[in-house]
C-alpha cells in the first residue's frame, strides 16, 4: 500500500461519513444506545490515543509524564486549548534540557 493510497482511503472514508447523512440518509437516529455511544466516542478515542502513547513519544518517558500532568492540571483549571497545548510542549522542552544536563 503506497503512502498516497493510504491518504486516499483515509480521506474518502472520512468524507463518506460526513456526506452520506447530509445527502442520502437524513433520518434522525432514534436508538438511544447508538446516540449515547456516539456521544462517548470522542472522549474514549482521544484518551486511548493519548495514554499511554504520550510516554513513548518523547525522548524520555519522564518528560511525557510531565506533559500529561501539566496538561491535565491546566485543562482542569479551565485554561484554553492553545495554552494547554503550548504548556505541554514547553514542559517537554524544559524537562528534556534538565535531563540532558543531569546525564
Amino acid at each position: 500500500m503506497s503512502l498516497y493510497g493510504y491518504i486516499f482511503v483515509m480521506a474518502l472514508t472520512t468524507y463518506l461519513i460526513r456526506v452520506l447523512p447530509l445527502t442520502l440518509f437524513r433520518k434522525p437516529i432514534r436508538s438511544r444506545f447508538l446516540r449515547s455511544f456516539l456521544y462517548y466516542v470522542p472522549y474514549a478515542c482521544l484518551t486511548a490515543m493519548t495514554v499511554p502513547a504520550i510516554f513513548f513519544t518523547t525522548e524520555n518517558w519522564i518528560s511525557g509524564a510531565a506533559a500529561l500532568a501539566v496538561g491535565i492540571g491546566l485543562a482542569y483549571c479551565g485554561k484554553s486549548l492553545l495554552t494547554v497545548a503550548l504548556s505541554c510542549s514547553a514542559a517537554v522542552l524544559v524537562l528534556e534540557k534538565i535531563l540532558t544536563v543531569l546525564e
Binding site: 506533559a67 496538561g71 485543562a75 482542569y76 485554561k79 494547554v84 503550548l86
Partner: peptide
Amino acid sequence: VMLYGMFIAIVVP
C-alpha cells in the same frame, strides 16, 4: 506533544 495537549484540553473539562 502539542497534539496530545490538545486532546487533553478537549477531554478534561
